[in-house]
C-alpha cells in the first residue's frame, strides 16, 4: 500500500470550520506517527478544538481528506472508528450515581452486544485501563465525588478501555491545577511509550508542552507550524510569533517572560540556589540583570550558616534585607526616588 500507512492519521490539504467561505484553518497537511505524543497549541479561537473534533470525526471537514491508517475517515464504519479513535473533552461531565468502573466500562460500547454485557476480554481491557491510570482504589467510588484531576484521569481510563490506537484530547488539563496538569500530561507520555498509543491533545500551557511532547502543532495566523519543541525554539518560530505580544520567549530556557525595562538594570553577585532565585525575582520585578558599567544598583547575595542576607547598595545608601520580599520592597522605594 502507500507510504501513508505508517501514519496513524494524516491530513491531506484539509480545511476545517463551519463555513466554506470562511474556514477556520485551511491547507492542513499534518501527520501523526505511531506512539507519538503531539500537543496542539495556539491562542483561543485559532481552531484547536475544531481541528481535534474534525480528526475524531465529531464534525465534518470543509474540504480535503483525513486518512486514518491510510484510509479515508468516511470509509470507516461508525464501529470501526470507535475502535480506532477515542476522544476526551475538556468538559468535566457530571453524572450522579455512576461508579468509576461503570463509567470506564462505557468505553467498551462498540465491542459489546445490544445489552452491553461485558465478556471476559472486555473485563481484562477495563482492568488494564484502570491499572494503567492508577485508579485501582477508585473503582467503586462514585464519579461525582472525585476531584477534577481524578475525573479527568477516569475519562482517560475510559478512552483506554475503548482500546484505540489514537487518542484525541481537547484541552484535558484546562480545569486542573498545576500538579494535576503535569500529572495528566505525564500519564499521556507514559501511554505513548508503554502502550504505543498515538496521542494528540490541545493545551494552553506551552511550558508543559515544551517539556513533555514529541511534536508540537503550533497554530498561528491560520497556519500550523510543526516540529519538536526544541526545533521550534531553535528555528525561532516561538520567538517570532510571540515577539509582537508583549511577551518575550527566552530561547535559552524555553520559557516566556514579561517584557523588561532595559534602563532598570541590577547587578547581582553571589552563587548557588539563592543567587538563581534572586535573579528570577529580579526578572519577575521587570529588572534586567545585565550588570554593565552604567548599572547603579548592586545586590549581593550572602549565604551564611543558617540564613541568607541581601545587601543592596546604590550611590547613596546601603541596605540589608533578610528576605527577597523585603528586598523587593526596598528596590521599589529606590526606583521611585
Amino acid at each position: 500500500m502507500n507510504k501513508d500507512n505508517k501514519y496513524i492519521i494524516s491530513l491531506d490539504n484539509v480545511s476545517i470550520g463551519y463555513n466554506k467561505a470562511k474556514p477556520v484553518l485551511s491547507n492542513i497537511n499534518q501527520k501523526a506517527g505511531k506512539g507519538e505524543l503531539i500537543a496542539v497549541v495556539g491562542s483561543n479561537g485559532t481552531g484547536k478544538s475544531t481541528l481535534l473534533r474534525s480528526i475524531a470525526k465529531l464534525q465534518d471537514t470543509l474540504s480535503g481528506n483525513i486518512l486514518l491508517k491510510g484510509k479515508k475517515l468516511d470509509l470507516w464504519t461508525r464501529t470501526e472508528l470507535a475502535q480506532n479513535i477515542s476522544f476526551v473533552s475538556t468538559e468535566l461531565t457530571n453524572v450522579n450515581n455512576l461508579k468509576v468502573i461503570d463509567l470506564i466500562s462505557l468505553g467498551r460500547f462498540s465491542y459489546t452486544n445490544w445489552q452491553g454485557k461485558l465478556k471476559e476480554n472486555d473485563k481484562n481491557v477495563i482492568n488494564k485501563s484502570i491499572k494503567k491510570t492508577g485508579l485501582e482504589n477508585y473503582k467503586n467510588r462514585f464519579f461525582n465525588n472525585l476531584s477534577d484531576g481524578e475525573k479527568q484521569r477516569v475519562m482517560i481510563a475510559r478512552s483506554l478501555s475503548q482500546d484505540t490506537d489514537l487518542i484525541i484530547l481537547d484541552e484535558p488539563t484546562a480545569f486542573l491545577d498545576l500538579p494535576n496538569k503535569y500529572n495528566i500530561v505525564n500519564l499521556l507520555f507514559e501511554l505513548t511509550r508503554t502502550e504505543n498509543k498515538t496521542i494528540i491533545f490541545s493545551i494552553h500551557d506551552l511550558n508543559i508542552a515544551i517539556k513533555e511532547v514529541d511534536k508540537i502543532w503550533l497554530i498561528n495566523n491560520n497556519k500550523i507550524y510543526e516540529g519538536s519543541p526544541e526545533d521550534l525554539i531553535l528555528n525561532n518560530t516561538f520567538s517570532n510569533i510571540f515577539a509582537n505580544r508583549n511577551l518575550s520567549f527566552n530561547v535559552k530556557t524555553g520559557e516566556f517572560k514579561s517584557p523588561v525595562n532595559a534602563d532598570k538594570d541590577i547587578c547581582i553577585r553571589g552563587r548557588g540556589i539563592s543567587y538563581e532565585w534572586t535573579k528570577k525575582a529580579m526578572e519577575r520585578l521587570r529588572f534586567t540583570t545585565e550588570c554593565n558599567k552604567n548599572t547603579k544598583i548592586i545586590v549581593e547575595v550572602i549565604d551564611m550558616d543558617k540564613k541568607t542576607e541581601w545587601h543592596i547598595s546604590n550611590k547613596e545608601n546601603k541596605y540589608v534585607c533578610k528576605s527577597i520580599y523585603e528586598l523587593s520592597l526596598i528596590l521599589r522605594e529606590i526606583i521611585k526616588s
Binding site: 465529531l58 461531565t93 462498540s110
Partner: peptide, 23 residues
C-alpha cells in the same frame, strides 16, 4: 427497555456517545 445500553452511553453527552460509536 431494549435501549438501556444507548441511554447509558448518553449519560456522558452526545459528543462522547458519538465518539464511542453511537449513531
Amino acid at each position: 427497555l431494549l435501549s438501556g445500553k444507548i441511554l447509558n452511553v448518553l449519560l456522558l453527552g452526545e459528543s462522547y456517545a458519538a465518539s464511542m460509536g453511537l449513531n
